[in-house]
Design a protein around this nucleic acid. Structure first.
Lengths: 217, 217
DNA sequence: CATTCTAGTCACCGCACGGTGATATGCAAG
DNA sequence: CTTGCATATCACCGTGCGGTGACTAGAATG
C-alpha cells in the first residue's frame, strides 16, 4: 500500500522528449529567469532527478533543446524561393529586402527573442546556441550582398551593424513594452513603418556612398 | 561580556548614506541580478533590518538611489557649451554630432548601461528611473533638431529610432562581449568607426530625403 | 539618577532552489 | 519463475534568499 501511484509508463525516450519539450514551454511562459531544474521538471510532470540521469544536468539539457530547432533564420530563408531574383536586385532594394525578411524571421521566433534577451544578462549554453548559428549566418549574409560592396563602402558595415542591433533591441524590448519612441512594437504596422524607413534611407545612402555604385554584381 | 563589539556610531544620516552608496557599488560590481537586500546590507557593512527601517524596503531604497544621480544625459550635455554653434549646424552634421555625443554620454555611464540591461529582463523601480528621465529627454532632443525636420521627413523618425536602439543594444552587449560584427565594442576605435558610419550615412540621406532640405532653421 | 527614544545587533522563520542517496517497480532475458 | 537491470519515485540535505520579532546600548530629557 506504500506507493504505486499509477507508476508511469517506463518509456525513456518519451520521457526525455517531454523534458526537452518542457524547456521550450517554461522559457516561453516564464522567461529565462525562471528556467531551472525544478521548473522544468514540474512542467514536464517528471521527477527532477531524471534530468540529471538522462542529460547530466541543466547545461546539457539546454544544449539538447537548442539543437532541436532552428533559432536563427538561415540565409536561404531570407532569400526566399525567388533566390535568383533577389540576387539580381539593385543593391538598395536588396538591402531593404534583407531587413524586411530579417525582421519577419525574428518576429516569427519568440523563443529566439527570449534567448536574445537572455544573452544580455549572461552567457550560457542557450546563448552559445545563437552565437554559433549567428556566426555562420553573418558570413553567409555578407556574401548575399557580395562582399565587394562592403569592401567598396567601409562605412556600410557600421550602419548595417547598428541597424541589425537596433532591430534586435527593439524586438527584445517589445516583449515588455508596447510603444517605444512613438512606434508600436507589438503591431505589424509599427514594424512596417520601420521597414519603410530603412528602405527610404537605403536608396540615397547606397547611391551616394561610393561615388557611384547602385547596382551589384 | 555579552556584546559591545565596539557598537557602531549611532549616526543615522551617515548609515543611510552608506546604504545608498552600497547600491551603486553592488550594481557596478555584480550586476542587477545580485542586487538584493542581503547583498546591499553586506556591502554597506550594516544589518539588513536597517534597510527596512530607514527606507521601507528594496523598492524604496532603489528609488532613493535613483534620485541621487543623473543617469540619462541631458540635452544640454549633448549640446555642450557651444550651444548656439551646434544649433546653427547644417542638419546632417548636427545629426552626426548628436550621435557622437549620445554615444559618449552613455559610454561614460556604466551604471546606466547596467540599468538599460536590467530593463530587458523586467520592469522595476530602477527601470522606472530611466523611463521618466528618458521621456523628457525624447521631447527635448527632438526639439534640438527642430521638429520641423521630423515633420518633413516621416521616415527619419524610424531610422533615428533604429540607430538609437542599436547604440543601446551594442552598449549593453559590450558588457559581456568584446567583438560584435567585426567591431571592437570595448575600444574607442570601435565606437569611432560607428560614429563615422553614422556621419557618412547622414549626409546623403538627409540631403535626398525631402527633395531638398540640407540646412535647418 | 531614572525614563524614554532610537540606532544598531542577533537570532530566527519560511521558502525555493540545486543536488544526491536510497528505494520501489516494471520489463525482459536467463 | 527468478534474476537483473533500467526506469521512475521519495525523502532528504545544504544554501541563500527576503523578511520579522526581540533584544542591547547610546543620547537626550526630566
Amino acid at each position: 500500500m506504500k506507493a504505486t501511484p499509477t507508476a508511469r509508463q517506463r518509456d525513456r525516450a518519451a520521457t526525455e522528449e517531454r523534458i526537452v519539450a518542457a524547456v521550450g514551454v517554461v522559457l516561453a511562459r516564464n522567461g529565462f529567469g525562471a528556467l531551472g531544474i525544478n521548473a522544468i521538471a514540474r512542467e514536464a510532470g517528471v521527477d527532477k532527478v531524471l534530468i540529471y540521469r538522462y542529460f547530466g544536468g541543466l547545461p546539457e539539457l539546454l544544449q539538447r533543446w537548442g539543437s532541436s530547432g532552428q533559432f536563427w533564420p538561415s540565409v536561404q530563408e531570407l532569400l526566399g524561393d525567388d533566390d535568383e531574383a533577389v540576387r539580381a536586385l539593385p543593391l538598395p532594394q536588396r538591402y531593404a529586402l534583407f531587413f524586411d525578411r530579417f525582421i519577419d524571421a525574428l518576429r516569427a521566433r519568440p523563443l529566439t527573442v527570449e534567448i536574445l534577451a537572455a544573452e544580455v544578462v549572461e552567457r550560457n549554453e542557450l546563448t552559445a546556441i545563437l552565437e554559433t548559428e549567428r556566426e555562420q549566418w553573418g558570413v553567409q549574409a555578407e556574401a548575399l550582398f557580395g562582399g565587394a560592396d562592403f569592401e567598396r563602402m567601409p562605412q556600410l558595415r557600421g550602419i548595417t551593424l547598428l541597424l541589425v542591433a537596433g532591430v534586435q533591441y527593439l524586438l527584445v524590448r517589445s516583449r515588455k513594452i508596447r510603444i517605444f519612441g512613438g512606434i508600436d512594437l507589438q503591431s505589424d504596422a509599427g514594424w512596417a513603418a520601420l521597414k519603410a524607413s530603412v528602405a527610404a534611407m537605403a536608396l540615397p545612402m547606397l547611391d551616394a556612398m561610393p561615388a557611384a555604385a547602385g547596382n551589384a554584381r
